[in-house]
Amino acid sequence: MIDVLVKYLHWHYFEQSKIILLAWKNLLRFNLEYFSIPTLLRTFLWPWRKYEDSFTKGFDLLKVLEVITFNMMSRAIGIMLRSSLIIMGTLMEIFILFGGLLIFIIWLIIPALIVIGLWLGLKLIF
């Protein structure tokens, strides 16, 4: 019986803790990739879906202004949409960070929680 208990404690606090930390790390890493945060940051100022106009030969002030305005709007749309995804991804990252920490802490104290649960349950019943 004692050896099973020792084995359990080793499994709970060493082996499974390692797995939880690894899963947490993978989720944090995956979240960044899922929301493409590095790619979005790298291409933050790029025109939206490569939509940009180019300057024609010769100089036509109106045409030049039109091109500049269009390209700025394209980039603005790109910035807006990329920002929204970056924000969502970041919020999700924070959620995973704190959520993972919470799960890890609960895992560490779960034996104590079990004892409390048993005591509380029996107390309420009787």
């Binding site: 899963a23 890493r29 995956f30 990739e33 899922y34 939509y51």
Partner: peptide, 21 residues
């Protein structure tokens, strides 16, 4: 499910936003 290879199967969002239609 929590391994990196398995998580990758969910794909990603927004990667094509830098490319043209």
């Amino acid at each position: 499910w929590w391994t990196h290879d398995n998580l990758l199967k969910f794909g990603s969002l927004g990667k094509e936003w830098a490319s043209g239609y």
